[in-house]
Design a protein around this nucleic acid. Sequence first.
DNA 1: ACGATTCTGGATCATTCGTTCCAAAATGAG
DNA 2: CTCATTTTGGAACGAATGATCCAGAATCGT
Lengths: 194, 194
Amino acid sequence: MRAGRPKAFEQSEVLEKAMHFFWERGYCKPGIAELVGHLGIGRQSLYDTFGSKRDLFIKCIYHYRATQLSTVIRILKEASDPLGRLKEAVRFFEALALDKSARGCLVANAIVEFGTDDPEICALLDETLALLEGGYLDALRRAKRLGQLPPTKKPAHIAKALTNASIGMAVTGRLSKDAAEIRAACAGTLAMLG
Amino acid sequence: MRAGRPKAFEQSEVLEKAMHFFWERGYCKPGIAELVGHLGIGRQSLYDTFGSKRDLFIKCIYHYRATQLSTVIRILKEASDPLGRLKEAVRFFEALALDKSARGCLVANAIVEFGTDDPEICALLDETLALLEGGYLDALRRAKRLGQLPPTKKPAHIAKALTNASIGMAVTGRLSKDAAEIRAACAGTLAMLG
DNA sequence: ACGATTCTGGATCATTCGTTCCAAAATGAG
DNA sequence: CTCATTTTGGAACGAATGATCCAGAATCGT
């Protein structure tokens, strides 16, 4: 097997950079030139490796799921102290909103930006959101079984409401608000659990 | 005072159409041609009357505030039964999310789309959100005074959390989800009040 | 050295962007 | 009618869009 010049970059590293780029700058606004400038590879290498801008973006959503969202879900699936895990997860989104870069959440941003006119991406985003909701639901059910949750609360409802509030915090995080305001919103949200 | 051909359109009617257009299609994606096609006036009339695309969008935010957001705030400021008003307001955003057109909320959409790179629009959106939060806070304080709210709940926190959840519902509404799912999320959110 | 593979960036593509210029048509008041 | 004003849309602007082609340099295995 003859072989030529080796790849000068790690595909996964570039994907990581691309994810952070779209996360912060959005999909529609920045052009290819700006994107390439942030990736550290040539324009043609980009098209050869990842296909179109849209293809790359879809790969970034999967990467976001695997590297960012998965950490919240891992927290929620831990066996001990499910109520504590729930608070921890909400605090994760609080941290998102507190972040100075005001990136929000890649998935939430994409939901808004793509609207309904790209069914494939839309379905992918919906599916991604369902993963988070599933994590919440799992922890809520265990919390209820342990008596950590008032018996009147319905896990299915709260799971959806927490997912919803998480998205809200991600969007709120795009405005650069006082840390105190964000913490207050988070504290209010946790009132759902008591 | 000599005068010529009269204006063939009502400025406020065109503004209304423009608002609905940006609401549904976003700001960045659609071009001027598509916009003009929906307004029913000529391209040059658009620039003469409203200035640039960005100028028009800012006017649309004000219009949205005056025609859409104001109805929620009016509900929240009604004197009687503040807890009922709060539920009514949350149900307003539930209706937003249930809407088949999947428009979400113009303000929430704009927050995501503009990120941090347009300080003027950003400040306007922040200010607009504060109006909603103020409405929630007002009703919450009155509810607490009337004993409709558990004394442990802090109106300032809940007001921010409800604002946050409202944004979340607006974003969730951009995905076309089952009505049942949206109603469940809404029901869970209302658990904050009990 | 040779062939194979990859990287890079300039040139180029058609398209679209927001915007401006302009000229013709329309319609009012004096 | 005349003049002022407004509407309309074609033409054009420079800039930017996403994407492709291509040539040259780089770097591997043989």
